[in-house]
Simulated assay, not measured.
Amino acid sequence: MAVAALLALCSTGPATVAHAQDAADQPFMAGAPLDLSSNAKTYGGFRFAESMAYDEARDLYVAVNAGIAQNIIPNDGYISLINPDGSTHTLKWIGVNRNGLTLNHPLGSDIINGLLYVADINVVRWFDMESGEPRGSVTVEDAQRFNDIEVAEDGTIWASQTGTEESGTWRLYRIGPDGDSSVVVEGAPLARPNGVAFDPDGNVVVVNINDNAVLTFSPDGELVKTEHAVDGGNDGLVILDDGTKYVSSVRIGTVSRIRPGEEAEVVASGIPSAASMSYDSKRNRLLIPMNNWNAITIVELD
């Protein structure tokens, strides 16, 4: 009996791998919205929600969940849809199963031209915003792990690599629509770069985890301007059409606002692990995921 049990245990690994491969060959299937009675609402359903995006077309919030760590369960990332009142629309929209899907450990995200782009280790994947189906991906072989991304109208992807404490790993990548990638900025003034966003002039703005700098680079990588959030340890970055910047500190739990030409001020606080946030332009609010707290916070702005 002991030998039989041991053989059964040893066979679990290959069988699991085979099952995963079989699933990858199956047609993609999106998760269905919850079919609740009118007197019921569901909240939650997150597993290390790292970034959010606002789906303006459907007026829904997209929450990107990294899932369980890769060394425990690989390919466990998924994407949820949230109603503006905070209740859950679809618990697992992308990732209800693994049929036709690879989504290992997704972090940063962006929506542009009907596509949801997601940073997934050293790969950027994109999905159809209507069906949830995978539409493509690009791999950057020399990248360690992308953190946040911002995507231009022409499909150019800007991606931060937070790296380690070694400055040579601090990078800002540009990935062209043809898939060619280049390192635009490496090392200081980057200091474990995280959030990435475009300003109204088409520059690329980056915030750091290791300090409170808010760095504005030209598309060629020239440092144009340096501003400062109130706190360091920054993760999320939102820039409005008038140039106002909002910066979330994943370490301190605050949100700084930097209006053009003014000093930073704290507009929200007490938010544990305030990660890669987004902006609801219809309601003038910030959408902040709280990664390992498995929650989101909505901040109403004045």
Rank of each mutant, 00 (worst) to 15 (best):
I94F: 04
L91C: 01
Y117P: 01
K92Y: 04
L101R: 10
I94K: 03
S109Y: 05
A119M: 12
L101E: 11
I112E: 14
I112H: 09
T102N: 08
R98Y: 05
S109K: 05
N99P: 00
V123K: 08
L101K: 11
L116C: 13
N97V: 03
N97E: 09
L116N: 14
R98S: 14
P106R: 12
L91H: 04
T102M: 06
I112W: 02
L115C: 06
N104E: 08
N113R: 13
P106K: 09
G100Q: 11
K92S: 10
L115V: 03
V124L: 05
L101Q: 13
V118G: 06
G95E: 15
L107M: 11
I94A: 03
I112A: 06
N97Q: 05
V123R: 09
V118S: 08
N97A: 06
V118F: 13
N97L: 05
N122Y: 14
I112L: 07
A119G: 07
G100P: 01
H89R: 15
G100L: 12
N99V: 00
H89G: 00
G100D: 10
N113E: 14
Y117D: 03
N122L: 09
L107C: 00
L91D: 05
G114S: 04
L116I: 13
K92R: 15
G108H: 09
D120H: 02
I94W: 02
V123G: 04
N113L: 11
G108E: 13
L101N: 12
G100M: 12
G108Q: 11
R98E: 12
L91E: 11
L91W: 01
V96R: 01
N104C: 00
I111Q: 05
Y117A: 01
V124W: 08
T90Q: 02
L115T: 04
K92G: 02
S109D: 13
V124P: 00
G100F: 13
K92A: 15
V96T: 11
L116R: 14
V96H: 01
L103H: 12
V118P: 03
T102R: 09
V96Q: 01
G114V: 07
D110E: 02
S109M: 10
H105N: 11
L115K: 15
W93R: 03
H89T: 03
Y117F: 15
N99T: 00
V118A: 14
V124H: 03
R98I: 07
I121Y: 06
I94N: 04
P106D: 08
A119H: 08
V124G: 07
D110V: 01
I121C: 00
G100V: 10
P106T: 08
V123F: 04
T90P: 00
A119P: 02
L101W: 13
T102K: 04
Y117W: 12
N97T: 15
D120E: 03
L116Q: 14
Y117S: 01
N113Q: 14
I111P: 05
L101M: 11
P106L: 09
V123D: 04
S109N: 14
L115F: 10
N104R: 02
G108C: 07
V96N: 05
D110Q: 01
V124F: 10
L103W: 14
H89F: 09
K92W: 03
P106Q: 09
L101C: 13
H89C: 04
